[in-house]
Design a protein around this nucleic acid. Structure first.
Lengths: 213, 213
DNA sequence: CCGACCCTATCGATCGATCGATCGGTCGTC
DNA sequence: GACGACCGATCGATCGATCGATAGGGTCGG
C-alpha cells in the first residue's frame, strides 16, 4: 500500500464527481481512476451514495470549522465578513473539486442525507448572516435586504471554484483580497480588510486543509 | 393535441434536468413527466443529448439576444452594465430551470456541442467585459482586475436562479434593482441604474420570453 | 521452527435491474 | 388509403452491487 487506498478512492471520487457529476460517474470509472477493480472498491466504501455523502459532510464540516476559527475572537463586523469572504475564496480556489461537488450534487442525495448537508450549509451561512446583520446594526454596512445581499455575496465567492487556476496571473492572496474588496464595496463599507486578518485566514486554511498557502 | 406536444416534451426535460441533472433523468422519467410513452418521445426529439443541446442553445441564444436588445443604443457604461445585470437577474428569476440546466449541465455535453455552447457563452460575457472595460477607461468604474470582477459579478447574478421565489417578499423589480446596486457599488461607481433603463429591461424580458413582468 | 488459523486486500465472474433506443404495429383524421 | 401521432414489446449495453476465491502477512499453541 504505497499510499492510503481509502484516501485514493476518495480523491478519485471527488475528481470524477466534480468533472462528470455523480450520476455521470460509473462504478467502473471510479475503479479505473483509483486503480482498483470495481469489486475492491466496495471494500473501502459503502454504496456509491455513501461515498458522496461522506465527501459532502467532510468538506462542509471543514469549511464550517475553518470559518469559525478564522472569525473566532473578531468583534468588528468588517473584519468578520472580510475574513469569511477571504476564507471562502481561498477554500474554493485550493479545493475546487470538493466545493463543486458540494455545490452541484445536492440533488443526487436522498432526503435524509440531504437534510444533514443542508443543515451544515445553514450553519455556515449563519456566520455570514450574523456578520452582515451586525455590520448593518453598527452602521458600517448599508443594505436594505441583508439576506439577499448575503446570498449574492456567497454565490459570487463560490464561483471562484469554476475558473481559478494557480497558474494564472493572480496569487491566492491577491484573489482573496480582491474579493474581500468587492464584497465590502457592495456593502457600501468604507473600511477594508486589514493585512493581519488576511494573514490569519491563510494560516487557518493552511492548517485545516494541510496545504501551503 | 391540447397543447403543443413538442413544447411539452421540452418543458418536461427542462424541469427534470434542472431538478435531477441530465444523467439523473431517465427516458422513462421524461416520458412520464410529458405524459407520453418513452417510444413516443422519439417522435419529437432526436437522442436525449440532442434534447439537452437544443435546450441549452435556445436558452443561451435568447439570453444573448435579450442582452443585445437591452443594451442597444446605450452609450453610457453605467447604463449598459446596469442593464446587463438587471436583465440577467430577471432572466434567472423567471426561468430558473432553464438557466440551471445551462449553468450546471455543460459537463454532460460531448465536445462538439460543448464548443458551440461555450461559444455562445463567451459572446454573452463579451458584452459584460466591454461594458466594464469601457467604464474603467471612462473613469466611472474602478477595478484593477476587470476580468476577475466580471466573473464575480456574473456568478453573483446567476445565483438568483438557485433561490428566488416569486411568492417571496421581493418583486422582480426590487430584485433587479438591488443586484444592479450591488454590482455598481462593487465597481466603486457613483452612478445608479436609472428607472427608464430598468423599465426597458422589463420590456425586453417580457418580449423575449413572452411572459408578463 | 512449524503448521493451523485468521484477517486484510484484492480480483474475475456474474447477478438482476435499468439504461437509451428501436421496431412493428394501431388508431383516428383528412 | 395515406399520414401524423402514438404505444407495447423488446433489443443489446451498461448500471450498481455481490459472490466465492485467492494470495499474503500476522499470530498462535506446540
Amino acid at each position: 500500500m504505497v499510499v492510503n487506498t481509502r484516501e485514493r478512492v476518495r480523491q478519485a471520487a471527488v475528481k470524477l464527481f466534480a468533472a462528470k457529476g455523480f450520476h455521470g460517474t460509473g462504478i467502473r470509472d471510479l475503479a479505473q481512476e483509483a486503480e482498483l477493480s470495481s469489486a475492491s472498491l466496495y471494500h473501502y466504501m459503502g454504496t456509491k451514495e455513501d461515498l458522496l455523502v461522506a465527501i459532502m459532510n467532510e468538506s462542509l464540516r471543514r469549511l464550517l470549522d475553518a470559518a469559525e476559527r478564522a472569525t473566532a475572537g473578531l468583534a468588528d463586523p468588517v473584519s468578520r465578513l472580510g475574513s469569511l469572504v477571504a476564507l471562502h475564496v481561498l477554500a474554493h480556489a485550493i479545493q475546487p473539486d470538493d466545493t463543486r461537488v458540494v455545490d452541484n450534487e445536492v440533488h443526487a442525495l436522498t432526503p435524509g442525507a440531504r437534510a444533514e448537508v443542508v443543515g451544515l450549509r445553514d450553519a455556515y451561512e449563519r456566520l455570514w448572516a450574523d456578520a452582515i446583520e451586525d455590520g448593518v446594526a453598527a452602521g458600517v454596512f448599508h443594505t436594505d435586504q441583508p439576506s439577499v445581499t448575503r446570498l449574492a455575496l456567497v454565490e459570487m465567492c463560490s464561483g471562484v471554484a469554476r475558473w481559478y487556476s494557480p497558474s494564472g496571473p493572480l496569487t491566492l492572496d491577491q484573489l482573496a483580497a480582491h474579493y474581500a474588496e468587492l464584497a465590502l464595496r457592495a456593502l457600501a463599507c468604507e473600511g477594508r480588510l486589514d493585512v493581519s486578518a488576511l494573514q490569519n485566514c491563510r494560516e487557518v486554511v493552511s492548517g485545516v486543509w494541510r496545504v501551503p498557502v
